[in-house]
Simulated scan of single mutants.
Amino acid sequence: MTQKKKESMKDNLRWTPEMDECFIDALLEETMKGNRPDGTFSTYAYDNMVQTLTNNFGTHITKQHLKNRKKTLSQRFAELYDLFHGLSGFSWSPITKLFEADNQVWHDLIERKPNARKWKNAPVLHYDKLYELFSADRATGKYSKSGKERVAQWNSNVGGTNVESECNFQYESPNSQANLDDSPSNGTSVGTASVRGQKRKASMIESIEERCEKMTAGIKELVDVMRDGNVVAERQAQLAEKQAQLAEKHAQVAEWQAQIAEKQAQIAEKGLSILEKSRPRHYSEGEVWTAIEEIGIPEEQKLECYFFLCNEERHKLNCFGVPPHLRLQTLLRLMTDARNH
C-alpha cells in the first residue's frame, strides 16, 4: 500500500452511529466544562475529545476529523432546524426518532417544501442533543433565517405543538441504525446557488473557528509566558536577597578579621616593649662620662671611674642598673671590691 493510500484512509474516517453518539456526548461535556468560549471549542477541548474517541474506538482520529464531523453534524441540524423550527403540528419523538405530525400537516408541508418529504419516515438520531449544541447558533443569527422567511413561515403554520416543546432532551439509544449522514433522498435536487452559498457559509464559519482557536491558544501561551516570567522574577529576587545576606555576612567576617588583626598588632607591640625592657642596655663611652658627671664624682677621680666602668661591661650594668641616687655609692663599692681582689 502506497503512502498516499494510507493517508487517504486516515483522512476518510468512516463514522458509525456509536462514534457519533460518543462524539456528541463529548461535545456536550466540553461545553459544560466551559471549553467552548463564545461558541467556539478551544484547542484544549479538541485534545480532550480526540483522547476520548481514541480510548473508546482505538481508531486513528485527529482533530481535523472531529472538526469535519462537527461541521457535518451542524449543517445537517441546520437543515432540520430551518425546516421544522417553529412549525405547529410537528414534534420530534425521542422514542421513534421521527418528526411526527398528522398526515394532513405533512401533506401541506410537502406541498410547500417538497424537500421535506425525505424526513417523513427517516429517523433522526440525537436531535435532542444536537438541539442543545447548535440551536443557540441558529437563534442568535449565526445561522438564523431572515425576518421575511420567518414571517412567511409563521403565516403558513398549522395548529399543533412546536418542535422544541416536544424535545424532552432525554436521550435513548436508537433502535434504528440511521445516521445523520444517511438522510433519504426524495429525488429533489438542491439548487446550485444554494449549495454554493452553504459551502461559502460553512467555509467562513470554519475559518472564524480556526482563528478563534489560534487566538485562544495564543492567549494561553501568553499567560503561560507571563506566569513563567513571574516565577523567574520571584526566583531572581530570592537569589538577590540571599546574595545580599551573604555579602552582609562577609562584611561582618571582614570586620571581625580587622579587629583580630588590630589586637594582634597591639600584642606584638607589647611584646616588643617587654623584649626591649628585658634586654640589657648598652651604654656608650659618652653616656658613661655624662653619668659620672651627674653622680657628683670629684674631679680628680673622674678619669679613674671612667676607665673602671669602660673596661668592664658588667661594672657598667651593675652601676647603671640601680636608681640614679644610689649610683655613686654603688660605683665606689665596686671599685673598692676590685682593689681588694
Rank of each mutant, 00 (worst) to 15 (best):
P323V: 08
Y283Q: 11
I297F: 00
D11I: 12
E285W: 06
Q170G: 03
N179D: 03
N162G: 10
V50K: 06
V50M: 10
A217Y: 02
S91R: 07
S42G: 04
Q243W: 08
E262V: 02
R196Y: 13
P114N: 03
E166A: 15
L13Q: 00
D38Y: 08
D224G: 00
K214W: 02
E132Y: 10
D337R: 13
L125H: 05
E172P: 00
G160T: 06
S74C: 07
N48Q: 07
K148R: 11
C310L: 07
L332R: 14
M9W: 02
F23M: 13
Q51W: 13
E166S: 14
T59V: 11
K4I: 11
V231F: 12
D102R: 10
A202W: 11
K302C: 06
L87S: 02
C22W: 00
A122G: 04
R281K: 09
N186F: 08
A178K: 05
K220F: 14
L246P: 00
I61G: 00
M226W: 07
E248A: 12
A136H: 13
S165F: 09
Q301P: 06
H60L: 09
Q153C: 01
G58V: 01
Q266C: 13
I208C: 06
S207R: 15
N12C: 05
S203W: 03
Q266L: 05
I219W: 15
K220N: 04
P37F: 07
E262T: 08
L246S: 01
T192Q: 15
Y143P: 04
A261D: 12
Q259N: 09
R196A: 03
P323W: 02
E18N: 09
M335H: 05
T330C: 11
G160R: 06
Y171R: 08
T59S: 05
D20N: 08
A268Y: 07
N318Q: 13
M215F: 13
S146F: 02
V124Q: 11
N168V: 06
L109R: 03
F307M: 11
G39F: 04
D224H: 12
E100H: 01
V322R: 05
Y131Q: 08
G197K: 05
S203R: 06
E7M: 10
L303M: 14
D102E: 04
L53P: 00
K201M: 14
G197W: 13
I295G: 03
K67L: 01
N48T: 08
K302Y: 06
R211P: 00
S144A: 10
V231L: 02
R227H: 09
K120E: 09
S173Q: 05
E248T: 01
A217F: 10
E248F: 00
V225R: 15
F57Y: 11
T188K: 08
N35F: 08
V322K: 07
G141C: 09
E172Y: 05
D181L: 04
D137R: 05
R14A: 03
P323G: 11
A152C: 00
C212I: 04
A291C: 09
S165W: 12
K148T: 07
F84C: 04
S88Q: 04
E313V: 07
K142R: 09
L239Q: 09
K199A: 12
E276Q: 14
E209D: 05
I205W: 02
Y46F: 14
L317W: 12
K118E: 03
A254W: 00
